[in-house]
Design a binder for these strands. Structure first.
Lengths: 227, 227
DNA sequence: ACCTGAACACCGTTCAAGT
DNA sequence: ACCTGAACACCGTTCAAGT
């Protein structure tokens, strides 16, 4: 290359130069450490040792930042599900993957409800839907079946995200659930007999196992429509 | 009354005096008209012809305002379900009631994920759970069954709430869904074959009927666990 | 091309001062 | 007891000015 003669070293970027990727990685770090409220453009700029305006050279706005960060995390989850897995197991794996991702990155839970044409949503719908098809769900029932399963997964994700917002970042889910159980147990038995009755189970239950039980319940319902 | 003698008219409050109830009613009006973004303390104060500080005399903060407004709307929905209805029909009626409430007040959808000890959540869990019990779901399966059903209902509510945020307030859901269908149809067939295939159905489908189909699917799954 | 950081137009909330 | 509205401590975003 002719230009090499001019100077011995290439005009290289600072190794810590800003980039879309670095900004998103930093955003994820801040979100994981401090929760949704901790991600401000100023905090992000400080973390990257730059001015707040610099962020806007690489990403359109804060919304895009959150959406892209979510896409990154969900893409990782979905791609990690073994391609060779049997359809039913693959669906369970995707569902659990999303569940665990929200446990690790609670702020993702709220983001999953944003624009349904973004990769995060598409990946989940595609991976669940294609497996339902492989499972032999008839064409006519596919859309409703996939919709039910995905909305259930999103519902749990949203609830866990919201719950995480109510405690200090990093707090175990079971601590929060025990607190809710206490409040449920103290309710008026005349007004909320069922909720009160569930309080004990809420305290002791494994909510991850319960989540999977819900997936199985919906899969069972889908199967009855086939028979 | 002795004090009546002092003055002919009682020292009565201005008929438009502030009250918790009036503030919440005004908040609901603003939220319905302009969406979540329109509710600011300043806008609320202006609407009530008062200072912003006056709001804080009656409610603790904006969060309480949104939570109470949500409780009001959900309580209305649940109480409107006929007490004499057969359990299965009652569950469907509650689910549809929540669905329609979010259609009328999209901002409610996001609020349903907040504190699970608030009336809004309790009313839904209680009304669904007690009906599942009446339906003969065994004790051991009750908690998982109610959890699955409620999380599905909340998932759809959250999605519809988020969708509504993406269009001008008052826009019909079908207009938005047609837009999503267009974006889904344009996806890479190699990457998203299933989603693409669903695009046509997304454009033409009745999402309210689909929501109910999901409820039925889960009820069918719950029934299989009983047999 | 990329970065800086002051400035702008907002927020929710507080609180001294009024009635 | 209830209300006022300026003030405070924040936001996200823009943009002239720098390199």
């Amino acid at each position: 290359m002719a230009s090499m003669a001019k100077k011995t070293h290439r005009i290289e970027r600072r190794s810590d130069a800003l980039s879309r990727e670095r900004i998103i990685a930093a955003a994820i770090e801040i979100l994981d450490r401090g929760g949704e409220g901790a991600l401000t453009v100023r905090a992000l700029a400080a973390h990257l040792a730059t001015g707040s305006g610099a962020i806007y050279w690489h990403v359109a706005d804060k919304n895009e930042l959150l959406a892209t960060a979510t896409d990154d995390i969900i893409a990782r989850v979905v791609s990690e599900v073994a391609g060779g897995a049997r359809p039913r197991e693959a669906i369970r794996a995707v569902a659990l993957g999303v569940f665990d991702a929200i446990d690790a990155h609670p702020w993702v839970g709220a983001q999953l409800f944003r624009e349904p044409w973004r990769p995060a949503t598409l990946e989940i719908v595609e991976s669940v839907g294609s497996r339902l098809k492989a499972l032999g769900v008839p064409e006519a029932a596919l859309f409703d079946s996939a919709s039910a399963l995905v909305h259930y997964i999103l519902g749990v994700a949203g609830q866990n995200a919201a719950n995480a917002r109510l405690v200090a970042p990093g707090t175990d889910r079971s601590v929060f659930l025990a607190g809710v159980a206490g409040k449920w147990a103290a309710l008026d038995p005349a007004k909320y007999p069922f909720v009160r009755q569930m309080a004990t189970q809420l305290r002791d239950h494994d909510d991850r196992a319960q989540f999977l039980a819900g997936v199985d319940l919906i899969l069972a319902g889908i199967a009855t429509a086939q028979a």
